[in-house]
Design a protein around this nucleic acid. Structure first.
Lengths: 168, 168
DNA sequence: GACAATTGTTGTCGTCAACAACAATCTTTC
DNA sequence: GAAAGATTGTTGTTGACGACAACAATTGTC
């Protein structure tokens, strides 16, 4: 991870206003964003939408969405976790996780096992088919990740991961 | 914008599995993410949630959400745009923009003016109070942006903007 | 043993992306 | 210049998702 990455276009012309009122520039996408350029949130939002769309499309053949993938990955790496623990780790609300697990359990990828230590909680495990399915999901996710590299470049992707490492 | 930014923690211990089955590590957040670390989408998603929450909170006193702010900004910088043009520029669906504008028009920040050139479309303008309100929104948005700098650092924020410039 | 906290669950609400359909209005094409 | 097709704004539906609130069962604490 050297430096010297992170250059793209030479900036899309700062433009302010457009002079005449009802001009005829609505057709092209030559519309100034003004203050929006320079807002990290806007750029991040647009990128996040793009990246999720690509993920959903790339994992479309197996019908797995990003959140489902994150749940399966965490359970696969930490078998026996409670729902509360998974929810907290992924920043999902436990109410939301209930539905996610309902769906994944119906598809026989995950099973909830009543914990004997704490009879309130469920120990989450992948099923046998769940394990093999997750392996395939990971291959497809790696393909998606290659799309990201094609889009922003290898170095920029790694920079991004470093910058945002504190949020994972 | 030199280089040498983008370092954070020395990585949170790669850990794989945890050995024993129903261990007692559900309480702390020392849970491995396995394949999730290394996925740009996951990091971006978490960051985007954080940044939106801060934006919503910082602009809470004026009750303006990120999407509303982006719409106002674009209209303010390009008066007379049609709804279609704004939607296309911001990557919003025109169906969604209808409700956004309904709300902003009720609050007297924006007005739809029937275009004489194309009687199907509306020319969008800020009202007088809309102009002054937007000025205040921009000040608050700048404050939010300072929070981002506090969180990830000045250099990393600029790196981020450069990396993602192609998506704006 | 009484009381507070936790876990999974159910439900509601609001935001948002993705579609589909429609009437009014251009634009194209013959 | 009339018919066919495309565009604009609108309405509606669906589903994923975050945020809350409430609840029963269970555990922990004092």
């Amino acid at each position: 991870m050297t430096a010297s990455a992170a250059r793209t276009e030479p900036r899309p012309s700062p433009r302010k206003r457009a002079g005449n009122g009802a001009a005829r520039r609505t057709d092209a996408d030559e519309i100034g964003l003004d203050a929006l350029v320079g807002h990290a949130g806007y750029a991040v939002r647009r990128f996040q939408i793009w990246i999720f769309q690509d993920f959903i499309k790339t994992l479309g053949e197996v019908d797995i969405r990003p959140t489902q993938y994150s749940v399966l990955t965490v359970i696969g790496a930490n078998p026996g976790l409670s729902q509360m623990a998974v929810a907290k780790r992924l920043g999902i609300e436990r109410a939301r996780l209930v539905h996610l697990l309902d769906s994944l359990e119906q598809r026989k990828l995950v099973k909830r096992i009543k914990s004997k230590a704490d009879r309130r909680s469920h120990a989450l495990h992948l099923t046998a088919p769940g394990e093999t399915a997750l392996a395939k999901f990971k291959r497809l996710a790696a393909e998606h990740e290659r799309h990201v590299v094609e889009k922003i470049g290898k170095e920029n992707r790694e920079l991004l991961l470093q910058i945002l490492a504190g949020f994972t």
